[in-house]
Design a protein around this nucleic acid. Structure first.
Lengths: 204, 204
DNA sequence: CCTACCGATCGGTAGG
DNA sequence: CCTACCGATCGGTAGG
């Protein structure tokens, strides 16, 4: 059975990364062994080391691949040059769709970054910061008075809190899909942001 | 040097749990060795095993201790029988203060639960569910129309998203303290909840 | 692409 | 004979 040299190399790499992301997401990076990755992929451990230099490079590739797609998504939406409210809507809908299609990588990015070495963590958190900055810019353009009051950053982080946390409790195939939740998040944020700083939360 | 039998036993246990929580929060449960716990506490590993049956019981005690304090807090606030808005305010302020004083345990509870055995996970998630239910009941009493539309649960989870996520990015001693963030969370939630379902997020 | 291993370190326990 | 602890090492398994 002849085959082109490494004709499906990238495909195999992608399959291994997907299986590893699933294992890392559920068992944690230190808690997952290369033997488990080998078993899940159907490859021997030695074959795994043909595709990846070491266990660590699996972690880097999973985290960086995911955050790079998020960065590209933000760049795409910015290029559409939408009105502030539509820009916000597009960012929220697009990032939730991206998360929904990459739940394992999302979990790895949010809870296993601590295992990255300094240089890799710096590079990956830099991309993450540019994603957050894309949202913060959109919020600042939408409510410039909050930008002056330095409320943009905390508001951005609260929005990410709602969305990031969602994918820790949402069960795929559960009653609440991300499509059903997107308008609730958007209503809550759109309704709440104008109220921030007006002291409606004050006592009385 | 006479001493009372195990006079400081509970105190030593508490110290070990605090050190272990810090290590688990930063290195993960499987990524932390009992040798590290021993080094951090100043005890020999053998002494550690005098206080705890095994490494696993550290995890259970950290997670269960934290969630039990959260459960007690909710019971306390409910006992105050406040008006809906004040009840919500009290719940948000109290849980944020509790998180702020237990950041390590909070991280362990949110990202290391997956390492609990079935029986322990069931018991601990049961307590967690009662905490969430306390918030959901308060939201339902405050906005009964959302309860009818089955929006209470997602709204509760979005609120927990903002608060839980906050303690993953907030740096102790950073510019944004939890005291500064509490009114922003409350304004955003109080302003946003009435808008949910009114379709303000719809296109146009 | 596999079997057979390695140096090291793991969680847990021995004797005293 | 106890509790509280130590230095040293067990059998088994990790990443490679």
């Amino acid at each position: 059975m002849p085959r082109g040299r490494a004709s499906n190399y990238d495909e195999q790499r992608g399959m291994i990364l997907a299986k590893a992301a699933h294992l890392f997401a559920h068992g944690g990076y230190p808690g997952t062994s290369m033997n488990q990755v080998a078993e899940a992929t159907g490859f021997s451990k030695a074959t795994l080391y043909h595709y990846f230099h070491d266990k660590y490079s699996l972690l880097v590739d999973i985290a960086e691949g995911h955050v790079s797609r998020l960065e590209a998504l933000v760049v795409d939406v910015v290029a559409e040059r939408l009105e502030p409210e539509d820009h916000m809507r597009a960012l929220i809908a697009r990032i939730m769709a991206e998360y929904a299609g990459a739940q394992d990588a999302h979990r790895v990015l949010t809870s296993e970054v601590r295992f990255l070495e300094a240089a890799d963590r710096k590079r990956i958190l830099g991309k993450e910061r540019r994603v957050v900055a894309g949202f913060a810019d959109a919020i600042a353009a939408w409510h410039p008075e909050h930008a002056k009051a330095e409320l943009t950053k905390p508001l951005t982080m609260l929005l990410f809190g709602m969305i990031n946390w969602m994918f820790t409790w949402m069960r795929p195939g559960g009653a609440l899909s991300h499509e059903a939740l997107a308008p609730i998040v958007t209503d809550l944020f759109f309704g709440g942001v104008p109220a921030v700083g007006r002291g409606k939360a004050g006592r009385g």
